[in-house]
Design a protein around this nucleic acid. Structure first.
Length: 374
DNA sequence: GACTCGTGGAG
DNA sequence: TCTCCAAGAGT
């Protein structure tokens, strides 16, 4: 059934008033990015919050703002520094785009974020919804958003069928979102919709009895709010294997920087042998070609890791080079040498992927006596 | 439109 | 242990 033929909820004016009243009483007003609001702070928060829950973002946001309090500070930082602050948060293209965007704002916009949705969308990492959030929350412009919370709330109120990943469904939701977005208190309205979705109109157990729209929600009337929005079609996750070479020499672990794009782009990791069947045999082969004199090699327990679109079995191999590191050390001349194995996520100016950080921590625990901090 | 891109919490 | 998916955007 097309959304247009369905009964419509209350008029926009009533809708917004009810929502804002609820927001004033029950909304969240103490989040870090709701203090000292300006375009820079809101922008950083919105990027961090993409596909990431509030609780996970808060400590990252605070550390980030402490190190990069202004767009100028961020623009003049190195990419390694930025990625180090993002380490463990995931979706690292966000950090690379964030850095690039800061430099664009400083160099081409006089250090000021452009004051329109269209101009904001031109910037790297800022799409339609994030632009709407920045414009409405930090600039008090009338601009709509359509994040996961708003999609869920609107899909339920209007009983919009289908998965929002489909363009037609998304277009329908955008239309509704634009229609409801008020010209006054737009920032509060935006926050209110997200708060409603995050705290009350939740995915699994919506608290309809506390919702300001209870009497006007079609999905509630139908008795099946959790059927909205429609689910994403399932897909099989392919299996991948990798051998991770934990090469240690003279109390240091060798790390190489990953390619700028792709998974963990720009982050640092022990060298990987990708696409093989994994394990000690392939590591032996690799090592033999590089350094016949290598002393000790030991396979560690494999780690299974699930990404959003594939499974990865990591086969770590621990290689301890003799005092004369030979050709491996030569090959590794451009590599980073990690000394503070016990603190892979602090006091460093480069980023490590979360599973790698964990592994390094484990490795340290195994051989702590030999690798005391210098 | 279909893929790619992380991580941790919830169930 | 496994699936699902959260304040999406880029290719």
């Amino acid at each position: 059934m097309p959304a247009d033929s369905k009964p419509k909820p209350k008029t926009p004016g009533r809708f917004q008033q009810a929502l804002l009243k609820w927001f004033d009483q029950h909304g969240r007003h103490d989040l870090p990015w709701q203090q000292d609001i300006n375009p820079y702070r809101v922008w950083v928060s919105e990027i961090m919050l993409q596909q990431t829950q509030v609780a996970a973002v808060i400590p990252y946001y605070q550390r980030f703002m402490e190190s990069f309090p202004t767009v100028e500070a961020l623009a003049s930082a190195s990419q390694d520094q930025v990625l180090a602050h993002w380490s463990g948060l995931g979706y690292y293209a966000r950090a690379r785009n964030l850095h690039k965007c800061a430099q664009t704002v400083v160099n081409e916009h006089n250090g000021e974020f452009p004051r329109s949705v269209d101009a904001l969308t031109e910037l790297p990492g800022i799409g339609r919804s994030t632009a709407g959030a920045i414009a409405s929350i930090s600039m008090d412009l009338r601009a709509a958003i359509l994040d996961g919370n708003v999609k869920r709330v609107l899909a339920r109120i209007h009983a919009v069928d289908g998965w929002p990943g489909q363009t037609a469904v998304a277009n329908t939701l955008w239309e509704i979102a634009e229609k409801y977005t008020p010209a006054k208190r737009t920032g509060d309205y935006t926050q209110a919709m997200m708060d409603l979705g995050a705290t009350l109109c939740t995915r699994a157990k919506p608290a309809c009895e506390r919702c300001p729209f209870e009497q006007h929600c079609i999905a509630r009337a139908q008795g099946n709010p959790t059927d909205y929005p429609g689910k994403k079609p399932k897909k099989e996750k392919p299996e991948r294997q990798t051998t991770l070479l934990l090469i240690e020499h003279d109390g240091e672990l060798y790390l190489e920087q990953r390619p700028a794009s792709g998974i963990w782009g720009g982050l640092w990791s022990p060298p990987q042998l990708e696409g093989d069947d994994g394990g000690e045999a392939s590591a032996q082969e690799w090592l033999a070609a590089k350094d016949p004199d290598a002393s000790e090699i030991q396979a560690l327990p494999p780690m299974r890791h699930t990404f959003s679109h594939f499974h990865l079995d990591i086969h770590p191999v621990w290689i301890r080079l003799p005092n004369k590191p030979g050709q491996v050390a030569e090959a590794a001349s451009g590599w980073y040498k990690l000394r503070q194995l016990d603190r892979p996520r602090s006091g460093q100016d480069l980023g490590l992927p979360a599973p790698i950080a964990k592994l390094v921590k484990q490795l340290t625990a195994m051989r702590a006596p030999l690798l005391a901090p210098c």
